[in-house]
Nucleic acid binder design. Structure first.
Length: 582
RNA sequence: GCGCCUGUAGCUCAAGGGAUAGAGCAUCGGCCUUCUAAGCCGAGGGUUGCAGGUUCGAAUCCUGCCAGGCGCGCCA
C-alpha cells in the first residue's frame, strides 16, 4: 500500500523536475512515506515538500500544492490534503483496503514476503557459543534473535544461510578435556583437588562417566606429581601447567580422545537444544578445520602479501591500527601458535570466498571491541569493510521472583536454555527474547514468564489466532460455511470503526516485515503483532461475526481470517507457534 | 583513561528527524443469558538524565557533562 503512494509521489516529482520547479531528481530518502499516527491526518503522509522546499526555493506548503497538482490520478486514493507545516496526507478509499484484504487471503503464507533483498547472499552467524558446556539463557537470546532476523531477511528476498562457528580449538577445549579427565579420576577413586577454575558443571561428570564406559580404568595415572592450582598465585598459569602435565602423563592421543568425547557430547547437546528451540543451521563450521585445511595460513599470507604484518618480540603482528582498530594485534604468537583472531579473520575471509555479499555476525555485547579488528582484517585482505555487519546483543539478566540470578559457565551455577525452555515453554521464550531491541538489556523474569497471564504477550497474540479458529468451529456447529469469495465480494459491508481499524492494521504487515528486516529489529514485528491482536480482540468484543446475514457474515469471516493469516505468518517468522486451541 | 551500548510514566519498554511522546504491567472504575474474560472499555500517571547546538521541526542528529552496563590479553 505504501509503495503505491511512493510511486505516485515519485511520478509527481518527475513532472516537477521536467517543468523546472525542482532542480534535480530527489533521492529516495527525501521521498519518505509513513503511516500517520493520527487518523485525522489520513492514512499515509509524506514530508517531501518540507525536505525539498529549500532546493525549490519556495515555502513548503506552496511546493506541496505543486506536488499535489502533479500527482497522477488513482482509484485507490480518495483524498490528498496538505496539512500542518507542509505534510501531504493521503487518504485511501475503502476499495483500496478491501483489495489488500483479498491479497492477504490469496497469498496466504506468502503474504508479507518481498523481493527487497534482490537475492543478495547473506550469511548470518549467531550463537557460536564455546562448546564447553550447555547453552545458558544468554545464548538463548542470541538464538532467538539470530533465527528471527534470518527469517526476516529471508522473507524480504535475501538469500540467507545460517551458520554456527564451533570454537573447537584452543585453550578452553583443553581445560574442558582436563576437567573431564580429572572427574574421571575421581570416579576411579583417585583423591585430588579439583581446580576451581576448571569446568565444574554436572555435565562434565556425565561425560566422565562416558569416558569411564569407553576406557575402563585404562586412563588412570599416578597424579601425585601433578602441579597444584589451589596453592598457586596465578591460577590461570597454574591451570595451563596442569594441562601440560596431564597431556604428558596421559599421552596426546588419550588426552585428545577425552577432549573429543567432551566436544562431541556437548555439541550434540547444543544441536538438540537449538533444534528443539526451532533454531536450525545450514552449517556448523569448525574452527579446527581452518587450521587443518590451511585457511589460516592462506589468510596470513594474504595479510603479509599486502604488507599488513610485522614481527616484534618474536610474534607476528597485524597492523590493525592502520585500518581503524585502536591497536595492532598478534596473529602468530612467540611460540609459533596462531591466535584465535587469526582463525577468525581466516573464517571471515572464507565466508567471503564462499560468495556471501553480507556477513552478518550476531555477537554478545562483550565482543564489541573485536568488531573493528575483524573489519580491519577483511579490509587488509582486500575485502570491502562494509561487507561485515555486526549486531551486538546486550546481556540477559535472569530474575527469579524478583531476585537476580548469577550466571557463570565454569562454576556450573547457571540456568541453562533447556531449563528455561522447560519452565516457560519455547513459544514464550522465543517471543520474550526478541521483544526488546537487541541494544537493550533484557530482564527475563522466570516467574513472570511462567504465570501465563497477560504479562506474557505471547499468549495475547496466540489467543487472537486461537479465537479465529474457535469461531470457525462454532460456525460449523451452527451449520454455516464460510465462503471466502462471497466474503471478499462483500467487504464493502464492513463499515464500522473496528473493521476499518483492523483492516488497516492487517495491511501494515508487509511494511512491518520490511522495516524489521532492514533495521535488523525483530522486536518491531512483535510490537506490530501485539497491536494487531489488540485490534482483533477489540473487534471480537464489539461485534458478533456469526450473524444470519450471509454476505455480512462471510465478509467478517474473511476479515478475521486475514488477521489470522497475518498473525500466523508473523509468529512463524519469530519461531512461535500459532495454535488453534488454547 | 579510551571505546561500545543504555538513560522516556511507579515498573518493563515502544516511538524510520515529523503533527497532541505511546503500549503492557501495577493502581482505580466498568463489561460474561451472545463466536474462548488468557479478552474488552474507561481513568489517572511525563521538564524524554542535565546543559548547549544543528533546522521549518529533536526522545531521535552533534558537542560537553552526569549515571548505569560491558569491553580494552601473545585467552577464546
Amino acid at each position: 500500500m505504501k509503495s503505491n503512494v511512493q510511486a505516485m509521489l515519485s511520478k509527481a516529482l518527475d513532472t516537477l523536475v521536467s517543468k523546472g520547479v525542482l532542480p534535480s531528481l530527489p533521492t529516495e530518502e527525501s521521498i519518505q512515506v509513513e503511516r500517520t499516527r493520527d487518523p485525522g491526518h489520513g492514512d499515509f503522509a509524506s514530508n517531501c515538500a518540507m525536505t525539498l522546499c529549500k532546493s525549490a526555493g519556495m515555502p513548503p506548503r506552496d511546493l506541496a500544492q505543486q506536488i499535489v497538482d502533479a500527482l497522477p490520478g488513482s482509484h485507490l486514493v480518495q483524498e490528498v490534503t496538505i496539512a500542518g507545516p507542509g505534510f501531504i496526507n493521503f487518504r485511501f478509499s475503502a476499495t483500496a483496503w478491501q483489495a489488500e484484504i483479498r491479497r492477504v487471503l490469496e497469498e496466504g503464507p506468502r503474504y508479507g514476503t518481498s523481493q527487497l533483498g534482490l537475492g543478495k547472499q547473506v550469511l548470518v552467524e549467531f550463537v557460536s557459543a564455546n562448546p564447553t558446556g550447555p547453552l545458558h539463557v544468554g545464548h538463548g537470546r542470541h538464538a532467538a534473535y539470530g533465527a528471527s532476523l534470518a527469517n526476516l531477511l529471508d522473507a524480504v528476498g535475501f538469500n540467507v544461510r545460517r551458520e554456527y562457528y564451533v570454537n573447537d580449538a584452543g585453550r578452553q577445549m583443553q581445560i574442558l578435556g582436563l576437567s573431564v579427565w580429572l572427574r574421571y579420576l575421581e570416579l576411579q577413586g583417585v583423591k585430588l583437588a579439583f581446580p576451581e577454575n576448571a569446568y565444574r558443571g554436572d555435565y562434565v561428570l556425565d561425560i566422565s562417566r562416558q569416558l569411564q564406559e569407553q576406557h575402563g580404568d585404562a586412563l588412570v595415572r599416578d597424579v601425585s606429581g601433578l602441579p597444584s592450582v589451589a596453592e598457586a598465585e596465578d591460577k590461570e598459569s597454574a591451570l595451563s601447567a596442569l594441562i601440560a602435565a596431564a597431556r604428558d602423563l596421559l599421552g596426546e592421543d588419550n588426552f585428545r580422545s577425552a577432549q573429543d568425547l567432551a566436544l562431541n557430547s556437548i555439541l550434540d547437546d547444543i544441536r538438540d537444544d537449538l533444534s528443539e528451540f526451532g533454531v536450525v543451521y545450514d552449517r556448523w563450521y569448525s574452527e579446527h578445520s581452518l587450521a587443518e585445511n590451511g585457511a589460516i595460513d592462506r589468510a596470513l599470507q594474504k595479510l603479509q602479501a599486502n604488507n599488513h604484518t610485522y614481527v616484534k618480540g618474536g610474534a607476528t603482528w597485524f597492523r590493525a591500527s592502520d585500518l581503524g582498530d585502536e591497536k595492532d594485534r598478534v596473529v602468530i604468537r612467540e611460540n609459533g601458535q596462531t591466535t584465535y583472531f587469526a582463525s577468525d579473520i581466516a573464517y571471515h575471509l572464507d565466508k567471503r570466498e564462499r560468495g556471501f555479499d553480507l556477513l552478518l555476525d550476531v555477537l554478545g555485547a562483550d565482543h564489541h571491541g573485536y568488531v573493528a579488528r575483524v573489519r580491519a582484517g577483511l579490509e587488509a585482505m582486500g575485502e570491502p569493510p562494509a561487507s561485515l555487519e555486526v549486531k551486538l546483543v546486550q546481556f540477559v539478566s535472569l530474575f527469579r521472583a524478583g531476585k537476580k540470578e548469577q550466571m557463570s559457565t565454569r562454576s556450573g551455577q547457571f540456568v541453562t536454555l533447556r531449563q528455561l525452555r522447560d519452565e516457560v515453554g519455547n513459544d514464550a521464550a522465543r517471543l520474550i527474547y526478541v521483544m526488546r531491541s537487541n541494544d537493550q538489556h533484557l530482564d527475563f523474569d522466570l516467574e513472570l514468564a511462567k504465570t501465563q497471564s497477560a504479562d506474557n504477550p505471547v499468549y495475547y497474540i496466540q489467543y487472537a489466532h486461537a479465537r479465529v479458529a474457535s469461531v470457525a468451529r462454532q460456525l460449523q456447529e451452527k451449520g454455516y460455511r464460510w465462503d471466502p469469495e462471497a466474503g471478499l465480494s462483500a467487504l464493502h459491508r464492513l463499515d464500522n470503526e473496528h473493521e476499518a481499524a483492523l483492516m488497516k492494521t492487517v495491511t501494515r504487515y508487509p511494511e512491518t516485515v520490511e522495516l524489521a528486516a532492514v533495521n535488523r529489529a525483530p522486536h518491531m514485528l512483535v510490537h506490530y503483532l501485539r497491536e494487531l491482536a489488540n485490534d482483533f480482540h477489540t473487534y471480537y468484543n464489539a461485534h458478533q461475526f456469526i450473524v444470519t446475514d450471509q454476505p455480512l457474515r462471510d465478509a467478517r469471516l474473511s476479515l478475521v481470517n486475514s488477521a489470522r493469516q497475518v498473525i500466523a505468518n508473523g509468529l512463524g517468522l519469530l519461531g512461535v507457534s500459532a495454535p488453534d486451541n488454547m
